[in-house]
Design a protein around this nucleic acid. Structure first.
Lengths: 194, 194
DNA sequence: GCATAATGCAAACAATCGTTTACTTTTTCA
DNA sequence: TGAAAAAGTAAACGATTGTTTGCATTATGC
């Protein structure tokens, strides 16, 4: 009971944000209209502008998320591959995080400003994570990134039937193995250098 | 000297097509405007409509390309991984094919109709290729697809610095190895079943 | 309780886009 | 050569979009 005074329309704000998350995720940034978001939130389009400043401001509010990579801190190196893939699928299968990820993914492809911002944001978080795992992980990171990004695109954005239909545990096992091998290969190569 | 009579504006048609290819590839389907394409082709926007019917018709003309997978027919199974990756990079590094691929990739994400058409078209060509390589390849195909698609997205669409900067031969070697392992794993698993 | 500020809405604004129309210029060919 | 067809242009149409404006309604705090 301290700084929660000026709130009554917080409900409307959240309704707008939820609608925006869904529509940005499903339709992409350019296809999503403020009118459609306002309609889904049962409010006037002008209120969306008043609360979030602009369409870009609204998207920025939706795109605020981190990859929660901290939870991968204590994983043994030998299980890192499956852990990485499992964690990524958990993010994508979570309704809120998944929608935000899809919205960001789509926007980063259709909008140049969003692309630069999101690529930088992801690169930083991923680089930070891999830096804690030693030089071998840093070396393997770009290759692992291509595998993880491709999995996300094929399964959740393109929804390629033969990939989207695969059971989660099979994906974790198979692609986790591939990721693990990128790590192991890099580790061995590092050992040779010494 | 037979059926090439009614042609004088073929030059304009090709200028339009080249401009469309570049702009669709760089800006994506929704961001690309007929006005911008016409301007780059030094022609009036109405001519674009007259020659190609509509914006969608123009895009369809740009998106006509095949993956040229026939050239992978005689490759020994043990070198298929590197061959697949090398071939993909060759397509993407080719100016014309690369632009068409980028245009299709972008459109398949922003446009639902394009997505269905392109996913189906790619799935068919890829399935046809892998079917000639036996049941193990068919089983490994979805996983290989995630790796190849992710490589293309990261290197040519997102242009992630740490991935776009990698020398081509290193990419072929490292990711080719991962693709090869998907094939080998599937082959071994097939052997176990028997 | 009442002034004030926040919340809400309808309507219009201004810009952009795909496409159409009306018209002129150029090319083609019998 | 000269008439018909093709190629080309300028301008406008109609729809959609993000955003602004003006005004009503509701909640808040003294």
């Amino acid at each position: 009971m301290s700084i929660e005074k000026p709130r009554k329309s917080e409900i409307a704000r959240n309704r707008i944000l939820e609608a925006a998350r869904r529509i940005f995720a499903d339709d992409g940034y350019e296809h999503a209209t403020i009118r459609a978001i306002a309609a889904e939130a049962s409010i006037n389009p002008s209120m969306v502008i008043r609360y979030y400043g602009s369409k870009e401001g609204l998207f920025a509010a939706v795109a605020k998320m981190d990859l929660k990579v901290a939870s991968l801190a204590g994983v043994p190196v030998a299980q890192l591959g499956e852990a990485l893939v499992g964690h990524a699928l958990d993010r994508w299968d979570d309704p809120k995080d998944g929608a935000a990820l899809a919205a960001m993914m789509r926007a980063s492809i259709s909008n140049e400003a969003a692309r630069e911002r999101i690529v930088a944001q992801f690169s930083e978080q991923v680089a930070g994570l891999f830096a804690t795992m030693g030089p071998a992980a840093v070396q393997a990171a770009p290759f692992i990134a291509t595998q993880m990004l491709g999995l996300a695109m094929a399964r959740y954005i393109w929804r390629v039937p033969s990939i989207a239909a695969l059971p989660k545990d099979l994906v974790v096992k198979q692609i986790g193995k591939a990721v693990q091998r990128y790590l192991d290969d890099a580790a061995e190569q590092q050992r040779k250098i010494l």
